[in-house]
């Protein structure tokens, strides 16, 4: 019974991970410019990878394989933000500016409670 439950859970996790992986790549294609594309790519990096690896860990059971998968996941989580941040910094440095619907930077500088007017 537990064997069946574990099997079903790992099926669900792997299928969900595959879905989010494709969604991330689709977003990479559909988004209009660099900064919005980075948001889409981070779905693949975080949720897609996590679900796939958790599913595979359930298949592997308690073994060295599962620990290695965990290391790969931790590596993703440690390096993902570093790469994204470096990419954003280099892009801004090269004057690739994001297209904005709204820039709240000036508003954030004001003290709170000042923004009563619409």
């Amino acid at each position: 019974m537990t064997g069946f439950l574990v099997e079903a859970l790992s099926w669900a996790l792997i299928l969900a991970g595959a879905f989010f992986t494709i969604v991330g790549a689709l977003g990479l294609m559909r988004m209009p410019e660099l900064f919005t594309r980075m948001h889409a790519a981070s779905i693949t990096d975080t949720l897609g990878a996590t679900l796939l690896i958790l599913g595979m860990m359930l298949q592997a059971g308690a073994s060295l394989v599962a620990l290695k998968l965990l290391f790969i996941l931790l590596l993703f989580f440690a390096t993902g933000p570093v790469v994204t941040h470096a990419l954003a910094q280099s892009a801004l440095h090269a004057r690739v500016e994001p297209e904005l619907a709204e820039d709240r930077r000036a508003r954030a500088a004001e003290p709170p409670g000042d923004g009563r007017q619409p």
């Binding site: 949720l47 820039d103 508003r107």
Partner: peptide, 21 residues
Amino acid sequence: AWAVTKVVLDPKLPISPTMTV
């Protein structure tokens, strides 16, 4: 991630990129 997934899969692509501090 679920919120961004809904945005990506929406045919209208309802994004409103915003910078803030």
